[in-house]
Write a protein that binds this DNA or RNA. Structure first.
Length: 260
DNA sequence: ATGGTGGAAGGTCCA
C-alpha cells in the first residue's frame, strides 16, 4: 500500500502491445490484469513491458482464444490457477504480492447470442461458470482482489438502456441474479460502484457502432471486486474511456483503482 | 428482422 491495480480486456495482446505500453507509461498501475490475450504464453511480448518496469508476467494462454495475463512491477508469486467448468480454458490466472494480497484475474465466458441455457450451450457455460465463481468465493479468505471481464453488466446504470438490454446476453435477469449470488457469496465489494454509486458507467463499446462515442451504447462488463478487509481501503476508481478512442483499440477500456 | 466490426486461424469460430 498504496497500490494501483487495473483490468483491461485487450482483445489480442500481440496486436496491441504498443497500446499496453502506452497505457503502462501513462497510468503506471502496479498490477495490470489483461484478458483475451489470444496467444500461447511463450508467444507473448515481454521485453517492452520489462523496459517500462513491468518485469513480471504471470499468464495462461491458448492459441487464438481466451488467455489471461498479469503484468506487474511488484514482485508476485503465482497461485494455482482454477479450472472453472473443467475445460482447461485459460480464463483464470492468479498471483500474490509480497504483502500477501491475492489477485485473481478472470475472463468469464461471453455466453453467445441466445439467453437460454437449454438451447445455447455457451449461455449454459456462462451460468455454470458464474455458479462456480460463487462456490469458490465462499471459501476465499485474506485480502483478495478479483479483477476482470466478467461479461455481465449488473445494474440499470451499467447499460445504455435497461429496457433494451433485459433480453440481451450480459444483462438478462438470470445472469444478473447469478452475478449477485457470486458477489454475495464472497461478500465482494464492487469497488467501482462503491466509489461512483450514481450515473451511467460503461467499460465496453461495440465495434459495430458507426460512432461508438456519439451513440455511447456501452456496458459495464469489467469489474474490480475487493474482499471485506480490503474494500475500506479503496481510494479512487476510474474508467479510462479515452483509451477506447486510441488507434486500433480494444472494444474495452481499462478500469483502474487505487488502494491505500 | 437484420447486419453491422474486429481478431485469429486458416477456408470459420468467437466476441
Amino acid at each position: 500500500m498504496p497500490l494501483t491495480v487495473a483490468t483491461w480486456n485487450i482483445n489480442s495482446l500481440r496486436l496491441r502491445e504498443a497500446l499496453v505500453a502506452r497505457f503502462l507509461a501513462e497510468a503506471r498501475p502496479d498490477v495490470l490484469c489483461l484478458q483475451e490475450t489470444k496467444s500461447p504464453v511463450d508467444k507473448l511480448p515481454t521485453e517492452r513491458f520489462a523496459a517500462l518496469g513491468y518485469g513480471r508476467l504471470i499468464a495462461r494462454g491458448e492459441k487464438g482464444y481466451n488467455g489471461v495475463a498479469i503484468l506487474s512491477r511488484l514482485r508476485l508469486e503465482p497461485l494455482q490457477p482454477i479450472d472453472f467448468c473443467g475445460r482447461g480454458d485459460a480464463r483464470h490466472v492468479a498471483a500474490i504480492t509480497e504483502d500477501g494480497l491475492a489477485i485473481h484475474n478472470l475472463y468469464v465466458p461471453a455466453g453467445g447470442d441466445t439467453p437460454d441455457p437449454a438451447r445455447n450451450p455457451k449461455f449454459a457455460h456462462k451460468l455454470a461458470f458464474v455458479d462456480e465463481l460463487a462456490d469458490w468465493s465462499r471459501g476465499v479468505s485474506g485480502p483478495t482482489l478479483v479483477l476482470g471481464d466478467l461479461n455481465i453488466a449488473p445494474g440499470e446504470d451499467d447499460v445504455w438502456s435497461h429496457k433494451h438490454m433485459l433480453k440481451v446476453v450480459s444483462h438478462t435477469p438470470v445472469e444478473v441474479e447469478a452475478f449477485g449470488k457470486a458477489q454475495a457469496a464472497g461478500r465482494w465489494t464492487d469497488v467501482t460502484r462503491a466509489l461512483m454509486p450514481q450515473g451511467k458507467l460503461y467499460s465496453w463499446w461495440s465495434y459495430r457502432a458507426r460512432d461508438w462515442e456519439a451513440s455511447d451504447r456501452g456496458l459495464r462488463l469489467d469489474h474490480i471486486w475487493a474482499s471485506p478487509d480490503l474494500a475500506p481501503k479503496a481510494r479512487t476508481v476510474r474508467i479510462a474511456r479515452a483509451v477506447r478512442g486510441w488507434p486500433q483499440p480494444s472494444d474495452h477500456a481499462p478500469v483502474i483503482a487505487t488502494f491505500g
